[in-house]
Simulated scan of single mutants.
Amino acid sequence: MTLKLNVNGSEYVVESHPSTPLLYVLRNELGLNGAKYGCGLGQCGACTVQIDSRAVFSCLTPIVSLEGRRIRTIEGLGTTSSPSVLQTAFEVEQAAQCGYCIAGMIMRAQVLLDRNALPTEAELRKHMQPNLCRCGTHMRIIRAVRRALNMPPAFGDRERAP
């Protein structure tokens, strides 16, 4: 089946079965490898992308449901030479260990930044909860999102990177 997808502001025509998960189309047809295959069950968040400003697991999202919708991947946020505020915060806070979950974490966090400039600590933690980091860098990830939001350090945060 031929479908038109809007990914990172560009139109793409893809030839895939309608039930093909978006993750496979992004990686195999469009060469956008930021979203990772983690579990294939929507339980880890490594494949998180934005669809119409919502955080979505791309491993569970069939492409047939995406025509006419706006898809944004980590590749659409910034570049190596010009990273987004959030990407810079993740770097400064050294939020990545192995890095496998980071694109999904950043995409989920970007939804929060776009939607709520002043979340509470509880809102931030609840929003980030669906995404997992197998290396256990959750505290650095939370600090990075707080930094991008210009939130003060939480009680118990160690000294933050400059």
Rank of each mutant, 00 (worst) to 15 (best):
A89N: 01
N150S: 13
Y100F: 15
A161V: 02
A103D: 01
R125A: 12
R146W: 04
G42A: 08
S53Q: 13
L132V: 10
R147D: 09
I74K: 09
L77M: 10
Q50Y: 04
V13F: 04
A154C: 01
F90V: 06
F155Y: 09
A122P: 07
T2W: 13
L86S: 09
E121Q: 11
L22D: 11
A117D: 06
L5K: 00
R140C: 00
R146P: 02
L132E: 05
K4R: 15
M1Y: 08
L26V: 02
P152R: 14
E29F: 05
A161Y: 01
H138T: 05
Q110C: 03
T73W: 07
E91H: 06
A55Q: 05
L118R: 15
C135F: 07
V64W: 10
Y12L: 12
R115M: 13
F57N: 10
G34I: 12
I106E: 00
A109Y: 05
G104F: 00
G78L: 09
N33R: 14
L132M: 05
C98H: 03
D114R: 03
V25S: 04
N116W: 02
M105H: 12
S19Q: 14
V111S: 00
H17Y: 08
L60C: 03
S16P: 02
V49F: 02
S53I: 04
V25G: 01
I106F: 05
L3G: 04
L66S: 01
V13E: 11
P162S: 04
A103R: 02
C44Q: 04
A144F: 06
I51G: 09
G40F: 08
N33G: 00
N6F: 11
N116D: 14
Y12A: 02
T73E: 07
E121M: 01
V145I: 14
G40I: 01
I63S: 01
P153F: 06
T73Y: 03
T80K: 13
R147T: 12
R115F: 08
A144Y: 05
A144Q: 03
T88P: 08
V111G: 06
C133Q: 01
A154T: 02
L22I: 12
E75K: 12
N8Q: 15
E93Y: 04
E15S: 13
Q94E: 15
C44E: 03
R143T: 05
T61Y: 11
T20D: 06
L5T: 05
R54W: 06
G156N: 10
G68H: 08
L41D: 13
G136Y: 13
M128N: 10
L41P: 03
L113S: 05
V64H: 08
D114K: 00
L149Q: 11
R125M: 13
N131V: 06
G104D: 06
V92T: 13
K4D: 14
D114F: 07
S82K: 13
A103F: 03
N150T: 14
Q87S: 07
M1R: 05
A55S: 15
G34E: 06
T61S: 07
P21R: 15
Y37N: 05
M151G: 01
R69N: 02
S19C: 04
A154L: 11
V56Q: 03
T73G: 09
Q97G: 10
T79C: 09
R143K: 02
T88E: 13
F90N: 01
E29K: 15
F90T: 12
L86I: 11
